[in-house]
């Protein structure tokens, strides 16, 4: 597509340069007529017909049934609730704010929304699909190359719409299976003293009322599941990259980083904040 655009650009501008600089002046009427009819009617008709045929031939792809795995995504203000339903599963693998897909397999993404209309869009993998409260929509995606792509909410959904993004990670099938197995497991126990203290801060501050960390008393469902938050590429639904420094900034300045978000900024400082960030970062 880009190649075609480059060729057209070169032809049009090359012709303009030729006519205006290399060979200025009047040209033979017959020659001019051929250029006009050939370049202005026949060529565009062929190019547009070819593009239309190609576009229509791939148009049904996002509606094709998947190869087994179903991912359910619910749009929240302003994050993504994600559930993986492998073929035949009774319970989902719960995650949030990141979509992982196996390369070479068509995956059905079932979409809905909590309160307002959102739109699910990973430009590198396919078109966008709206998410409506109380209605299910579906788009199926077939990643062809492993890599990390950016996903974005494409329907204005409130103050932090622009900050409602995610990373879409396409993995080789074996790698994906291993990741899904790890994602299905409970959160790892704190690995050192600082993480242990961080977990205490997490539970004492009441974070578990909104967030779940599986395998701990934190079972909240209001906000994103944090069981494996440290393994995600981004923080706050694509707001920042996942680093210790960004985790601290997020916890202490949530409302500044994501206007009108439900999570309040926490007045934590010093070791409490550092330990909490360290604990969350360790939840791989």
């Amino acid at each position: 597509m880009l190649g075609g655009a480059v060729v057209l650009w070169l032809v049009v501008n090359g012709a303009f340069y030729y006519m205006s600089s290399v060979r200025p002046g009047a040209v033979d009427k017959r020659y001019a007529r051929h250029i006009l009819i050939g370049g202005g009617i026949i060529l565009p008709v062929f190019v547009l017909t070819a593009l239309l045929v190609w576009g229509l031939s791939i148009l049904p792809d996002p509606r094709r049934p998947g190869d087994g795995l179903v991912v359910r995504v619910t749009g929240e203000q302003w994050w993504w609730r994600v559930e993986y339903w492998p073929e035949g599963a009774d319970t989902p693998v719960v995650s949030a704010n990141e979509i992982r897909l196996p390369v070479g397999q068509r995956t059905e993404i079932h979409l809905t929304s909590d309160k307002v209309i959102h739109s699910f869009w990973i430009p590198a993998l396919g078109g966008k699909m709206d998410m409506f409260p109380g209605r299910d929509t579906m788009i199926s995606l077939l990643p062809e190359r492993a890599g990390t792509y950016r996903g974005q909410c494409a329907e204005f959904c409130g103050a932090s719409h622009a900050w409602m993004a995610f990373a879409a990670v396409a993995l080789e099938p074996a790698e994906f299976d291993a990741w899904l197995e790890a994602e299905a497991a409970d959160a790892v126990a704190p690995q050192d003293e600082a993480a242990q203290r961080g977990q205490e801060v997490f539970l004492n501050e009441g974070c578990g009322a909104c967030h779940a960390v599986r395998g701990t008393p934190a079972v909240g469902l209001v906000g994103p599941d944090l069981s494996h938050v440290g393994s995600r590429k981004t923080l706050g639904a694509g707001r920042s990259s996942m680093t210790l420094q960004n985790l601290e900034a997020w916890i202490a300045h949530t409302e500044d980083l994501k206007p009108e978000v439900k999570m309040p900024s926490y007045d934590l400082t010093g070791t409490d904040l550092a330990d909490l960030a360290h604990y969350l970062n360790g939840l791989k």
Partner: peptide, 14 residues
């Protein structure tokens, strides 16, 4: 012809 092409390529209501 352009109006007809979707009929050729899209064989359903989806």
């Amino acid at each position: 012809i352009f109006v007809t092409l979707p009929l050729v390529f899209i064989g359903g209501c989806q």
